[in-house]
Simulated scan of single mutants.
Amino acid sequence: MDSNQKLVHSEEVKDEIMLVEFKLGKEFFGIPVTNVNEILMPSPVISIPRSHAYMEGITDIRGEVLPVIHLATFLSITEEIQQEQDRFIVTEFNDKRVIFHVSGVEQIISVKQIEQPTELNNRIQYVTGIVRNKDRMILMLDFEGILNEMNR
């Protein structure tokens, strides 16, 4: 087997999982609906001096100041310069709210089967599963792992 190939095994999900499908560059990703509070048009962001490149800054959402993470930058994904489709996904993980800036939100999908990667390299270390939806693959990300990495 080529070292670039990934081994996957498919797993039936007990209950259907609802995912918000979104884009980063040309790639498709998913986040569980249960972790999404809302999806917004991008609003003005105040930069934080001396922060990581992926830390876009902070913004005010109805009186609550939230951090804005540019997810493509964190994952080293090249984006097309097409900002009219950009969205803020307001999420909540472990009682912490954070905004992920993405290239666009596609749809909400129902998932019954997830393929589990069994061999990962550093480039996809935050991928927890792969969902096939029609003609494309959607990568499920480990958002808690991403947030833990940011807090180191």
Results as ranks from 00 to 15, higher is better:
69 I>A: 06
142 D>G: 08
27 E>G: 08
27 E>N: 09
73 T>M: 14
82 Q>E: 11
47 S>R: 08
72 A>C: 13
56 E>I: 06
129 G>F: 04
77 I>Q: 03
65 V>W: 02
39 I>H: 03
45 V>L: 01
38 E>Y: 06
76 S>K: 08
22 F>K: 03
87 R>A: 05
142 D>E: 03
98 V>I: 14
30 G>M: 11
114 I>D: 02
42 P>N: 03
36 V>E: 06
126 Y>Q: 07
48 I>A: 15
24 L>Y: 03
105 V>R: 03
85 Q>C: 05
91 T>P: 03
61 I>M: 00
140 M>G: 05
83 Q>N: 09
22 F>I: 02
27 E>D: 06
71 L>S: 10
134 K>P: 01
89 I>H: 01
37 N>T: 07
57 G>V: 02
22 F>G: 07
31 I>N: 01
126 Y>E: 09
61 I>D: 00
40 L>H: 01
65 V>D: 02
75 L>R: 05
70 H>Y: 13
45 V>Q: 04
138 I>R: 13
102 V>H: 13
25 G>L: 08
78 T>F: 15
75 L>Q: 08
44 P>T: 06
35 N>G: 07
128 T>G: 05
71 L>Y: 00
29 F>V: 11
67 P>F: 02
64 E>F: 00
133 N>P: 06
135 D>W: 02
31 I>D: 02
99 I>F: 06
56 E>P: 02
104 G>K: 04
29 F>T: 11
46 I>G: 10
125 Q>L: 10
41 M>E: 10
119 E>Y: 13
55 M>W: 07
76 S>L: 09
121 N>S: 13
97 R>Q: 05
74 F>R: 00
50 R>K: 12
68 V>T: 07
48 I>K: 15
41 M>W: 00
88 F>E: 07
61 I>N: 00
62 R>A: 15
129 G>Q: 14
83 Q>L: 11
86 D>F: 02
29 F>E: 10
34 T>A: 07
25 G>A: 09
61 I>G: 00
47 S>C: 05
40 L>S: 02
140 M>R: 03
67 P>R: 06
57 G>R: 06
119 E>W: 13
89 I>T: 04
136 R>M: 13
140 M>A: 05
106 E>F: 06
142 D>V: 05
114 I>E: 01
88 F>Y: 04
77 I>H: 04
137 M>E: 15
53 A>N: 05
60 D>A: 03
64 E>D: 00
80 E>L: 11
22 F>H: 04
78 T>A: 10
66 L>V: 14
112 K>H: 06
67 P>L: 04
123 R>I: 07
27 E>S: 02
56 E>K: 13
114 I>H: 04
75 L>T: 03
93 F>G: 01
65 V>Q: 01
34 T>R: 01
38 E>L: 07
138 I>Y: 12
88 F>M: 05
25 G>E: 04
93 F>L: 10
42 P>E: 00
104 G>N: 07
41 M>G: 05
62 R>E: 14
115 E>S: 10
129 G>E: 12
101 H>L: 15
79 E>K: 15
30 G>A: 09
137 M>S: 15
100 F>P: 03
72 A>D: 13
51 S>Q: 09
76 S>V: 03
141 L>W: 11
117 P>Q: 11
112 K>E: 13
30 G>K: 07
24 L>C: 05
54 Y>N: 03
47 S>L: 05
100 F>R: 02
